[in-house]
Design a protein around this nucleic acid. Sequence first.
DNA 1: CGTGATCCTGACCGGTTGGTCAAACTATTC
DNA 2: GAATAGTTTGACCAACCGGTCAGGATCACG
Lengths: 206, 206
Amino acid sequence: MPTPASQTRIQKENTARILEAALDVFSTLGYRGATLDRIARGAGLSKPNLLYYFPSKEAIHASLLAGLMTNWLDPLRRLDSDGDPIDEIVAYVLRKLEMSRLYPRESRLFANEILQGAPRIMDEIEGDLRALVEEKSALIAQWQAAGRLAPIEPRHLIFSIWATTQHYADFDVQVRGILRPQGDGHFDEAADFLTAFYRSALTPRG
Amino acid sequence: MPTPASQTRIQKENTARILEAALDVFSTLGYRGATLDRIARGAGLSKPNLLYYFPSKEAIHASLLAGLMTNWLDPLRRLDSDGDPIDEIVAYVLRKLEMSRLYPRESRLFANEILQGAPRIMDEIEGDLRALVEEKSALIAQWQAAGRLAPIEPRHLIFSIWATTQHYADFDVQVRGILRPQGDGHFDEAADFLTAFYRSALTPRG
DNA sequence: CGTGATCCTGACCGGTTGGTCAAACTATTC
DNA sequence: GAATAGTTTGACCAACCGGTCAGGATCACG
């Protein structure tokens, strides 16, 4: 892969199509379940042609994960110390839920990776992610010390937000199977539920 | 596989060792990532010998999933209409968390299966599981109608309980990576957090 | 002890997988 | 319209996969 600056038109098109197809395949079959043939077919290319743009299966996977981490942390990064604590956290929850609705494949790719021990992203988890969680946990603790938020362990609160929102992407099949015969309306339901739920849990008691 | 009654000593030992090793491998590598060689090595058997006890890879996997579903639903099944609503739900949360602590591999096996579209357990999901959720949701709605529980969509409440508790098994690596350098103490922390969290969210406001 | 049932193994097989390569084809540039 | 750089392909390969099989080792029991 040449540097972005020197990419030709065809290179831009084809790498994009490959990554798109690879996201489909990796997110539903997992790393080992995915095959180059399937990705190539999905991208409308031959297998050798695919390997002209990426040196290996591993490289495609790594490229997807690298592009993922930045966007994934963004909703938490936007938690604003100047806003109302409960509104801020509820807004964060809804941003995260929206990510599950719009980018379920990315969520599943991430889940697959963590499930298998996060061999390829452990560094990011123990680096950027950990630092961001530490920073925002301190902010939440600050809000709690001021009595503006129920005193609940901040890091586990963040875990619960990840869990509840990503659940609608990662366990989509199960959710649909149980909520059947509804359509996609369950994301709106989930938004209402999570708003009420977190608002109720976080509001301090007199 | 003979029926349990006619199983010899060696059959009992070896099928148990195979299922134990298979659980390890399937839960961390997924169905396609798992290989018979790895399972056989983990069980201390040769590959042909493994296939003497199970007719195929598929059969081992199916056997694991079949044994799983029964236990998996048990904590919810024990939700008691006679108890105090909030105590009952919190107790359910803690039972589920305990499952994540004691049986993380089973949780990951299940998660892997759902992530990949639940091709082999869709029937159970749309059958037993769906029926049980429907039954318990009705109970929760009843409690809410009596004003003993905050009015929060029951089925999504159940989803949130699954999500938050299973998170500590399925995303264990991530949780540890962020909470480092703690040991296993995070399960006790999680129990405290979830108790306070659900108690706060579910208690009706005056 | 013997004998039949159970258990185990090395060698093997067809299919699939990630990846290579030389050669042919196409786009861009002067 | 060459010459060059960039793109695509069919044929191929070694490694690995799930699974088979004939025969040998071991066990349980009369």
